[in-house]
Design a protein around this nucleic acid. Structure first.
Lengths: 233, 233
DNA sequence: GTGACATAAACGTCGTACTTTTTGTTCCCC
DNA sequence: GGGGAACAAAAAGTACGACGTTTATGTCAC
């Protein structure tokens, strides 16, 4: 775990957050700060700080006399990277992975189109480099090295779009991609068609062809969705 | 303000959050908990809780011996509804509004396509009702009533997509739409073409025509972007 | 000049005492 | 007997003071 003891409250958070998002404390259930303090052997101050954070994620609601109640799932801040990480580590990982992939399929094509218009020469170069890296590692069981390039590629596209909302999804995409490689059994080398598409996207962006970049990225997204359909029923 | 004194720490947050997002404390600047406690006349405990929340939003970073330093803008959790609200209330509202509208233009068409496939009969009914409501309030300076229907319409589409990530963007869209109506001077009645498009989207969703629903919603998005280009240079 | 050590500044943690709010209960009056 | 008002208890909120811990920084010796 990334539990580097960056403070007691952070450790507590790393216990409570996953537990709540995993449904261990179902919505509506109540926690009491005293009880938590005792159970985790920390002061109430520490518990309160952790609860404040969970509250800011809309995972729980703290009301006087009542306690800390877990909020219904629909109200959670599911865009919070921390929450995403917790949920991806938990039980309904497949569902989560699907949600995020659908989001990707909506966002990345548009981002690629914008990138074709606004990418700097440096970003174009980086993109081409990453695409070449993907080609170079696409055969011979080098999935880890491939993944690094894949993540970097998508991150550059999102950032090059010039839209900060898109850029911030880089982490999400990284989680999805690495999750896919790490968790789902991928014995085989990546789909050659996908690799080619990445190269072509880099090309389109470099040439400033927004329409083509968008269309190609949409094809990549469709592929990712189909792959998900095959691997997770 | 929605400053209902739900606790001292929340009040402090409502002071610090907007100040930071507005750039009043530029990235890199440091705050000290002692100093804040003194300045706002609260205990350090309260300050620390507020700081914890800001930290979870990645707005600040608290390090020993250094203090609480404001993080660079690119690291902020810009999907946090609270952060969005603060930034929309602040100075760079136009930039923010554009970012969010671009996000909408990417997400909503895909959401509409999914809604056409998965919307329940109740959701179809609600959608049609809202579209009709928009028509009914589209003339004669009833912008407020129109806005209510508009927001509800988009919210239903996002929820009907069946994707929780999309569903959670309902609040964001609501902020964007109400912000547009409230802030930018809209003397005139809404664009009749847009109203018609909404009616047609409701139609397409009801008939399960995903491709048409997506295409029509994309037209709405393009319109929103163009409108933004005209009103904000 | 470099490295080890001392120092102090800031946050981190804790225990305790007090306050506020909500809720449930009891008791009195109608 | 029923309803309403006052009261009691429970749980979180707030405050404070003391001590612990980390770490940037400066100093001193080599």
């Amino acid at each position: 775990m990334t539990n580097q003891a960056r403070g007691l409250h952070a450790q507590l958070l790393e216990s409570l957050g996953p537990a709540i998002t995993a449904g261990e404390y179902p919505p509506g259930s109540v926690l009491r700060t005293d009880e938590l303090a005792q159970r985790f052997d920390v002061s109430r101050t520490v518990v309160r700080e952790a609860v404040r954070v969970l509250e800011s994620m809309h995972l729980v609601e703290s009301r006087r006399r009542v306690g800390v109640t877990v909020r219904p799932t629909e109200e959670w801040n599911v865009y919070d990277p921390q929450v995403i990480r917790w949920r991806l580590a938990g039980a309904d990982r497949p569902r989560q992975l699907r949600s995020l992939t659908v989001l990707r399929s909506a966002v990345e094509p548009v981002a690629a189109g914008l990138a074709a218009q606004f990418a700097t020469p440096e970003q174009c170069a980086e993109l081409t480099g990453r695409a070449l890296g993907m080609v170079a590692t696409s055969r011979g069981r080098q999935l880890d090295a491939y993944l690094v390039h894949d993540i970097a590629f998508h991150r550059v596209v999102l950032r090059a779009s010039g839209n900060e909302m898109f850029a911030r999804l880089g982490d999400v995409v990284a989680e999805v991609l690495s999750g896919r490689t790490r968790h789902q059994v991928m014995f085989e080398d990546p789909d050659p068609a996908a690799v080619t598409l990445h190269v072509q996207v880099a090309e389109a962006v470099r040439e400033g062809d927004a329409v083509r970049a968008e269309r190609l990225t949409r094809e990549i997204a469709v592929g990712a969705l189909q792959e998900l359909d095959v691997l997770a029923p």
